[in-house]
Amino acid sequence: MSLGNLRDLYQQVILERYKKPRNRGKTNPIDRYQKGHNPSCGDTIELTLKLSVEGDRIEDVKFEGEGCAIAMASADLMADALRDKTTIEALEMVQRFQAMMRGEAEFPQESRKLNVMQGVAQFPVRIKCANLSWHTLKAAVEQSREAELAGYVSNEAEG
């Protein structure tokens, strides 16, 4: 087995976060709630956000759901990185993460832990696993009417 490539993908941090996530559960209170799923594989995520009184800053993020190591570790790392970010910053991070999955960007010092997901870019079929939580976050922050009607967002179009 060519473990070399696999170690790029399954970095220790990712496996640890998969095994012992730090941000599983639901926020209290739940200011935003969004379900996301990946229809091609059945992976699901339920994201909850606690916002500041003004509603412009994320105070806490929790997730529940079932999925592969990439999807679950990505959600857990995302939750850490979003704490105390403004909603505008959060949406910028969504874009940066998606760009990182295309191999076109990485995160600066303060969010560098997210860069462990960079290896996923080498495995195109797995990018949507990593993007699932970020895609769901975007809908949660934007309170997308479409997602509200459907009850969930699908990241199928993310590729």
Binding site: N5, S40, C41, G42, C68, A69, F123, V125, R126, C129
Partner: peptide, 29 residues
Amino acid sequence: MIHPHDLSTILDQSGIAIRAGHHCTQPLH
């Protein structure tokens, strides 16, 4: 503990093609 998707990626690195997911039988799963 290994999610089928992760397993499929690992096997693929060894040239082995298997299916991972719900195989279009979601209610059965």
